[in-house]
Design a protein around this nucleic acid. Structure first.
Lengths: 273, 273
DNA sequence: ACCTTCCCTTGACTCATCTCAACGAACCCA
DNA sequence: TGGGTTCGTTGAGATGAGTCAAGGGAAGGT
C-alpha cells in the first residue's frame, strides 16, 4: 500500500545522482526554459519514469502538474477519495495508518522516485505527510488509467512497482513479527543506506529527517526503545551520530549481521514485468 | 482462468461450498469431458479470472496447467527461480519467509481464487506450502508476461490484484506493529470470516486448517499465546470451538471492537484499475 | 535575551508476552 | 493393541520492551 519502503530500492537502473560529485546537480526548476520539466528531473531515469521513452514521458508530462509541499503538509488523507498519484522528485514523506485510539503505524517513508497513491482503491487507505519540503509530480488517477491502454509499458511498470512494494511490505512483516529491537533498527538503517546508494548517492552517512517517534512507529517500538538502541549501537561503534538526524554507518557488516537480512547480498531486486 | 460458459459461474461465485450439504459438490475434474476446465472452476468468477471474457479466458487456459498438491507439499521455494504463477482453485496454503536462525513469518494464507508468485522478482522471495490438499492453475510466468501485450485487461487486473495485496499487507503491518495479542487474533478471525463470505460461503463458522503455531507465526505471537487467547475468547463467549480447527464466531461485534479495524464497515476494497 | 515547545536521552519500574515445562488427546503405523 | 509423534492447552516463572518520569538541548517566537 503505499509507496513505501522499497520501491526505490528495488530499482536497479539508477545511475543518475551519483554523477553529481563532479558537476553540480542541475536542480529542476519547474518548466524552466520551457522544455519538459522531466528533462531536469533528478529522478528522470528512475522507477516508472526510467522505463519510458522520451515520447511516452512527454505524454505523461502532459497530464502531470508539479507541486510542492512544506514540512508537515499532507499529500493525501486516509479516507479521502483517491484521485491522484504522486511521484516524489525531492524531499521525504511518511506514510501511515491510524487506529481509532490514535496508535500509528508508519508503513513507509517516501524518497525521491517513490510513488504514492497507487495502492489505493476508491479511497486512500493511508495518510502521507511531508517530513521535509517536497517537490512531487502529480498525476490525475483517471488520466493515468486512460493512458494504460495506449501505453502498455506504463501499466507493466506500475505492476512492477506494486510488486516490488509488496516484496518490501513482506520484509517489513518479518521485521515487525519476528525481529527484536536491535534487529529492527539495524534492518532499518541498512535499508535507508541501501536506498541512498540506489539513488546514486555515495557515502555511509544517512540522514533521517524523521523523529525518533516516527522511527518507532515504523518499527513497532517506542521512542525510548529506539533512542536506547541507537545509543547502544553508538557505544558499540556500529554507528556514529552527528546530531540525531545524521547517522554515519561505521560498521555495516555488524549491522548486517544483526539485521538478519534474508537477502544476504543486499542486492536490490527488480521485478521483471 | 479458463474459458467457460457462464451459467456455472454465476452460481459458483457464491454459493458453492455451502450448498454441499444437500448436493454433492461437483468437483471440477481437470479437462473432464474435454471442455475448458474453467467451466467447472469454483473460482471462475473471482479475482483475475472474473475480469476476463470467455475468449480471454480461453487464451489464458491455453497456457495453464492444472496441478494438485498434497498437504505439506511445497508450491514454490524461497530463492528459487520464479518461473510460475499459481491461482488457487481449491485448498489452503501458507506463504512464509524464514530468518537464518529459523524464525518464521507467515505473510499470508492462500484460499481459492488467491494468486501466488506475483510478488516475485527473478527469484521467489518466499515459500508457499499446502496446508490441505490443493488444486491450482499454473501459469508460466514468461507466457503470462507475453499475454500482457495482447490482453491489456490482464495487466490491469494484475495491477489491481497487487494493489489489493499491498493494502492487505499494510493492514498486517498495523496489526504486527501496533496491536496486542487479543486484537491480533480478533483481526485475524474476522479477516478469515470476511474472506469466507467474499468467497460466497455463508455462516459464522470458519475452518482454520493451520495449526496454532502457524497462526502464531502469522500474528507475531507464540503458540502458547494464541492458544491462551483463543481460550479467553471462548470463555468470553466471543467464539465457540468445535475442535481446534473449527471456530464459530458467536459475537462478531465484540471481535470487531477488539480488532480495531480501520475499516469499520468491513467492506472489501476493490482496486479500480 | 528570554520563554516556550518539541525532541532526545536516560533511569527506574511494570507488564504483556515469551520461555520452559508438563500433560492429555488425536493420529499414525506396525 | 501399543508406542511414537504431533498438537493443543495450561501453569509458573523470566524478560524484553513498554510506561512513567525527569532533565537537557535546540529551535522558534516575541
Amino acid at each position: 500500500m503505499k509507496a513505501s519502503t522499497d520501491q526505490v530500492l528495488k530499482q536497479s537502473r539508477v545511475q543518475r545522482l551519483e554523477q553529481t560529485p563532479t558537476s553540480e546537480l542541475p536542480r529542476p526548476s519547474r518548466n524552466a526554459r520551457g522544455e519538459s520539466p522531466c528533462a531536469a528531473c533528478p529522478v528522470r531515469d528512475m522507477n516508472v519514469c526510467g522505463a519510458l521513452t522520451d515520447t511516452d514521458l512527454a505524454t505523461m508530462n502532459a497530464i502531470s502538474t508539479d507541486k510542492t509541499f512544506e514540512r508537515d503538509q499532507t499529500l493525501i488523507w486516509e479516507g479521502e477519495a483517491a484521485g491522484e498519484f504522486f511521484i516524489v522528485s525531492e524531499g521525504v514523506a511518511k506514510v501511515f495508518k491510524l487506529l481509532p485510539d490514535g496508535r500509528r503505524q508508519i508503513t513507509g517513508f517516501l524518497y525521491p522516485s517513490d510513488i504514492v497513491g497507487l495502492a489505493s482503491n476508491e479511497r486512500y487507505a493511508y495518510t502521507a505527510q511531508a517530513l521535509t519540503p517536497m517537490r512531487v509530480c502529480r498525476f490525475p488517477r483517471s488520466k493515468v488509467l486512460e493512458l494504460f491502454d495506449e501505453m502498455p509499458v506504463l501499466c507493466r511498470k506500475v505492476c512492477c512497482v506494486a510488486s516490488n512494494e509488496l516484496a518490501a511490505a513482506q520484509d517489513q512483516m518479518v521485521l515487525l513479527g519476528r525481529k527484536n529491537a536491535a534487529e529492527r533498527l539495524a534492518s532499518f538503517l541498512l535499508l535507508l543506506l541501501r536506498r541512498k546508494h540506489l539513488r546514486g548517492e555515495e557515502g555511509q552517512a544517512i540522514d533521517t529527517p524523521m523523529t525518533r517517534a516516527e522511527i518507532a512507529d515504523h518499527l513497532g517500538l517506542t521512542t525510548e526503545t529506539v533512542s536506547r538502541t541507537v545509543t547502544q549501537f553508538r557505544k558499540l561503534g556500529h554507528i556514529e551520530l552527528d546530531g540525531p538526524h545524521h547517522i554515519l554507518v561505521r560498521d555495516e557488516p555488524a549491522l548486517a549481521d544483526l539485521a538478519a537480512f534474508d537477502d544476504p547480498d543486499g542486492l536490490p531486486h527488480t521485478a521483471s514485468f
